[in-house]
Design a protein around this nucleic acid. Structure first.
Length: 948
RNA sequence: GCCGAAAUGGUGGAAUGGUAGACACGAGGGACUUAAAAUCCCUUGGCCAUAACGGCUGUGUGGGUUCGAGUCCCACUUUCGGUACCA
């Protein structure tokens, strides 16, 4: 009987749907296991063979876990909001929802052919109002919360208001944009607008005037992770800095918890390290600096408190408000000119061009420890967004300060013994401190021993000592800074979640929770309005009737009872930040998810996706989950317990070689001596690097009359290279095509056989034959004569070797080696003419995670009426692998020479004696003395020799 | 610059510190066939050697630890990712 994969796969895919094989429900009698793939953005190009890699890997694991008896949740959905659909809409007028739905259908069609065990009943789409209801809801919760450092959690904003009413800001330890101080009386005296503005300083979702990455090409702001090299990730348009009023999320409040949480999860060290760097914790100190001849005082942040004696100037960020306060009259013009210059520079220019620029402000700052007066400069190398936007410059021990000092001819004072600073600064945090004279105790210091002596200490000691000194004397304080910024949460786009917010006299108000979701309105144009408002400004029905609690036409806006609704929409990461929770209870209209579902499914046990989301989605999601955890919605502090980053499948491009100025193409092995241009050729008309010449002629009109110089066998051989898989390289291989030709089971097997899941590797269709041949042989073996007799010892040995290998390998996601084990096992069973039904049944179960269609068909043929998905995973029995003899290698000085067999349990001394007396040993022993013999039971007898 | 991962045949890749190159592709040879496809068998890291056996060498480079290193340690080279005036 032939292996008819088309029939088999179609039959089982249909049956799985009919019998709802993959629908799961909470079942307290079983342990849960939650497998999740990062849901895809359904792009117009459809899936190529690289996309399903992670899905297949997780599908195998999900099926394996189910066979192990777990109740497995393995859902799938779509990250449906995104720029491409909107850009397409702008160009064609086609509503983004239409193209998105088309793309989703195409994705689904492709996915279905591969035979995944997704529970499609739980599908979510971020653009579905039933879904984004909870995105809006979470946003409102964030708006109505602040972050309390004392209790290390988000708290309702009402409790903060109460605190203000009673004590003002006294005794607060909370996350805030800037440090405010006011009394209860002052708070009570504020009007509504002032109160609203003040609360924005504390809310977790808040409005702020911030410097944003403005992308004129896209007409919207972008998050830091959406900008690479000064251009937008989507579209590659230039990005500039602009001050705008934006919704932001106070991600920075969770910086420490995001950092600490990394130690509790099973992710690759490299991705955790990336997140640690992104969070960028740095311990340092803030020091207050008085400006000479002025009342102005500013604060600097430093991690090198030990270098206070090497300060020769101070620097302010150009955007800092302090610049205006310190600049003297005679330097005013120079400073203004410089600031104008800085503003005119794009983000990109600043990134590429690191030449030293800056200007003297005219003012001097006083070093609080030495009392020295040092000039204050304004320079763009100091960033407003980090620390306090002001630094003390120690040119001897900071390369940026060094370059600046050299450029402006400022003094450089070395502070570390033996450091050569004639050519460059000495930045290392090690060495012995010098040049730091004793600082006498201040009059206000308590006990007598209060001087500061740094000379002779190591840098580490000196940092600690200085920090302690400035804290004690009130010159400053110890401070931890994080590089992690608050996330900008609004976009000037159409195709995103609308904000459930309206504006009453400029004060943002939340639309009542019971009115959610508020749905994205229809617009006639997807571009910004003529007055420069975001696309939602085109909506005619986008106003909030407060009394009647409903959306009404804009024309009714009177700012008395009907108010304008927010025109911004939410960014892409809004919908993808908590989708894993929604899968647990996707049809719930009352809540994001029920308590019961949350308690049962907890969090994701295995998350599979690309590492490119390390500083985007994977940070935002962790933040979002921690916030929901504080609210008691999510039951686990970390959303994704184990993370596997699947590698990228690269394309394998093929080339033809056109002889210059002709339409003649020369085969790779004949091209020596010709001047040729390599041209990408569609890999789908090339087979094993041999070009289908007729297909090539038909491929494009300009090749219709092409001529060829073939090799001696009459073939045209193409060159090849590994490149990114993309349309423009003509190297895209479509999974449907592979499924059509070889079947889904072969595709699944081959994708895993290519190499480790986490590794990037090129796709090469050439190798797929091997996997297909294996399945054919497997099929032949399984469908051949079968007897219901006890398996022989040989059969059991082959089988249990396989069980052990496959079980261990799947646990470690080492699928390629377990497939190799299948191939070896099959060879063995064929060789010994195995016919045992019991062995075949076990094999059908073992292969089920990899090739589910085939496994089902075989399971049925073996006489089972139920799905193989619920069969028990075969138990491993060590007994069957036990051998009577152990094979050992005799080695001389570590070099293996010949094998020797001993009965199991042979005495060590007997082994040594036998090995030494073995005739084969004699020639190695000649002329040498035996120093010692090392026996590794079952492996190695190493005889250590020394010349006689 | 900093952080991370990696480097093994013609190719993809295997190897708890114990016979390097499993498994597969490709290639070469053979069987079956009128022929092709399909299928099956043999060979396949390099060098030397043989009637046959065999020997040497070999995991990016240079050191080290060890009876024994692809694997552990130190230094370096290259490649690929991430990040970048973060004080």
């Amino acid at each position: 009987m032939e292996y008819n994969f088309r029939e088999i796969e179609q039959k089982w895919q249909q049956r799985w749907v009919e019998q709802k094989t993959y629908q799961v429900a909470e079942d307290s009698s079983k342990k849960k296991f939650y497998v999740l793939n990062m849901f895809p953005y359904p792009s117009g190009a459809g899936l190529h063979v690289g996309h399903p890699l992670g899905y297949i890997a997780s599908d195998i694991y999900a099926r394996y876990k189910r066979l192990q008896g777990f109740n497995v949740l393995n859902p799938m959905g779509y990250d449906a909001y995104g720029l491409p659909a909107e850009q397409y809409a702008i160009q064609t007028g086609q509503h983004p929802e239409v193209t998105t739905f088309q793309n989703i259908n195409r994705y689904r069609e492709q996915l279905d052919k591969i035979g995944f065990c997704f529970d499609w009943n739980r599908e979510v789409r971020t653009c579905d109002p039933g879904y984004y209801h909870w995105t809006q809801w979470a946003f409102q919760k964030m708006f109505n919360s602040f972050y309390c450092y004392k209790c290390q959690s988000a708290q309702p904003i009402d409790s903060l208001i109460k605190h203000f009413e009673e004590k003002g800001t006294e005794g607060l330890d909370v996350a805030q944009s800037e440090e405010l101080t006011f009394t209860a009386e002052e708070w009570k005296a504020m009007d509504e607008k002032q109160k609203s503005d003040t609360l924005m300083n504390y809310r977790i979702a808040f409005l702020a005037e911030t410097n944003v990455n403005w992308c004129p090409g896209l007409g919207t702001v972008l998050a830091n992770d959406e900008v690479v090299d000064g251009v937008s990730v989507r579209g590659g348009f230039p990005v500039e800095q602009k001050k705008m009023r934006q919704w932001c999320l106070r991600v920075s409040a969770y910086a420490q918890r995001l950092l600490d949480g990394l130690d509790t999860i099973d992710w690759s060290e490299s991705i955790k390290e990336t997140q640690r760097n992104w969070i960028g914790r740095s311990e340092g100190a803030e020091v207050k600096i008085k400006v000479a001849d002025s009342d102005v005082e500013f604060t600097i942040f430093t991690t090198r408190a030990d270098t206070m004696f090497g300060v020769t100037f101070f620097v302010l960020a150009p955007e800092s408000e302090l610049v205006d306060l310190v600049t003297t009259a005679d330097q005013r013009k120079a400073v203004d000119d410089y600031i104008k210059y800085v503003k005119g520079r794009t983000e990109r220019e600043r990134m590429i061009d690191h030449t030293v620029t800056g200007v003297f402000s005219g003012a001097y700052g006083i070093n609080p420890i030495t009392g020295d007066k040092c000039p204050i400069y304004v320079a763009e190398y100091v960033l407003a967004g980090y620390g306090t936007g002001a630094i003390m410059a120690v040119p001897a021990h900071d390369s940026r300060d060094y370059a600046f000092a050299k450029h402006f001819n400022l003094p450089i004072i070395p502070l570390i013994e033996g450091a050569d600073i004639s050519e460059e600064s000495y930045d290392a945090k090690e060495g012995i401190v010098m040049n730091s004279p004793k600082v006498e105790p201040l009059s206000n210091s308590p006990e007598g021993e209060d001087s500061l002596v740094l000379n002779g200490l190591t840098v580490k000691e000196a940092i600690a000592k200085t920090k302690e000194y400035i804290t004690r004397t009130g010159l400053g304080r110890v401070k931890v800074n994080y590089r992690l910024r608050d996330a900008i949460f609004s976009r000037q786009r159409y195709w995103g979640e609308p904000f459930p917010v309206y504006y009453k006299n400029g004060i943002p108000q939340m639309i009542p929770e019971e009115c959610l979701p508020i749905q994205l309105p229809e617009v006639d144009k997807f571009l910004p309005t003529e007055t420069g408002e975001p696309p939602l400004g085109n909506a005619t029905c986008w106003a909030w009737d407060e009394a009647n609690k409903q959306i009404v036409e804009n024309s009714k806006i009177d700012n008395q009872t009907v108010f304008p609704i927010e025109l911004y929409t939410m960014p892409g990461f809004a919908g993808s930040s908590a989708y894993y929770l929604r899968y647990m209870d996707p049809h719930n209209n009352e809540a994001l998810l029920s308590k019961q579902a949350a308690e049962y499914w907890q969090n994701v046990d295995l998350y599979v996706g690309g590492s490119e989301h390390a500083t985007g989605h994977l940070i935002y999601s962790r933040f979002w989950n921690k916030f929901l955890y504080d609210l008691g919605i999510s039951v686990k502090e970390e959303p994704f317990q184990k993370l596997i980053n699947q590698g990228m499948i690269q394309g394998r491009s093929n080339f033809v070689y056109r002889i210059k100025d002709t339409n003649t193409f020369v085969s790779l092995d004949k091209k020596e001596g010709y001047e040729v241009t390599p041209i990408h050729v569609d890999v789908n008309i090339v087979s094993a690097d041999v070009l289908d010449v007729e297909a090539f002629k038909a491929w494009r009109p300009e090749y219709h009359d092409a001529e060829f110089i073939l090799n001696d066998e009459g073939k045209y051989i193409c060159g090849w290279a590994v490149e990114k898989m993309s349309k423009s390289m003509f190297n895209v291989v479509n999974p449907d095509m592979i499924v059509e030709k070889f079947g889904a089971d072969t595709l699944r097997l081959y994708e895993m056989f290519l190499g480790p899941v986490e590794q990037s590797k090129p796709w090469d269709t050439n190798g797929i034959d091997g996997c297909h041949r294996f399945l054919k042989k497997f099929w032949n073996y399984m469908t051949a004569d079968t007897k219901e007799c006890d398996p022989t010892a040989q059969e059991l040995k082959a089988l249990h070797t396989l069980i052990k290998k496959v079980t261990g390998d799947i646990e470690q996601f080492s699928y390629n080696t377990s497939i190799a084990a299948f191939m070896i096992c099959l060879n063995e069973l064929t060789k010994i003419k195995s016919e045992s039904k019991a062995v075949k049944e076990a094999l059908a179960v073992l292969i089920a995670p990899f090739c589910p269609h085939l496994a089902e068909e075989l399971w049925e043929m073996l006489g089972h009426a139920t799905t193989v998905c619920d069969a028990p995973w075969p138990a491993f029995n060590e007994e069957y692998l036990k051998e009577d003899n152990m094979k050992m290698m005799v080695a001389f000085n570590g070099k293996a020479r010949f094998p020797l067999e001993f009965p199991v349990g042979t005495e060590q001394q007997t082994i040594i004696d036998t090995a030494l007396q073995e005739p084969q040993s004699q020639k190695w022993l000649e002329g040498f003395n035996v120093v010692k013999v090392i026996v590794v039971p079952g492996k190695m007898i190493n005889i250590v020799l020394k010349p006689a």
